[in-house]
């Protein structure tokens, strides 16, 4: 009896884990599974710049609403020319990429950043031609 109920408890836990995992893809940062397919463009003011591990991010103020823009890992972001010196807080910036599948979430993954008249393709192979 004990053995069976323990096995059941484990099974329920495993199922719960998979259910949790399956219900969450819209929130995933890694890869592109959490983003829309079509390109999305965001224009606003730089509120914060993070160039570091595990991946670089920008916070962009769009008419008072803060967006989190995910970039590539730091090595790839810097290789694209986008360093902390490329933009300053308060600069006007355009991010082109894919936004979260969750319309309530102000989050996108950028393939291209345009700031101070310069274009940075952080994901060159995904950037629009």
């Amino acid at each position: 009896m004990d053995r069976i109920s323990r096995r059941h408890a484990l099974g329920i836990f495993a199922l719960g884990g998979f259910g949790f995992a399956a219900g969450m893809p819209a929130y995933a940062h890694h890869g592109w599974s959490w983003t829309e397919d079509g390109f999305f463009q965001l224009e606003g003011i730089v509120a914060a710049i993070y160039i570091g591990n595990p991946h670089a991010t920008l916070d962009i103020d769009v008419e008072g609403e803060l967006w989190r823009v995910e970039l590539a890992p730091p090595s790839r972001t810097v290789a694209a020319g986008f360093t902390e010196e490329a933009a300053a807080i308060g600069d006007e910036i355009t991010a082109i990429g894919n936004r979260s599948l969750d319309p309530a979430e102000r989050r996108m993954k950028a393939v291209r950043i345009v700031v101070n008249g310069k274009t940075y393709d952080v994901y060159p192979r995904r950037a629009p031609s």
């Binding site: 004990d2 323990r6 408890a9 836990f13 949790f20 969450m24 929130y27 940062h29 890694h30 595990p54």
Partner: peptide, 25 residues
Amino acid sequence: VRGTAATSLLLWLAVLLCGRFIAFL
């Protein structure tokens, strides 16, 4: 005693899952 062992199994697996989900939230 077996109860604490079963609880341990569930708790540490839950810790593992939570850890993995940090990167996806």
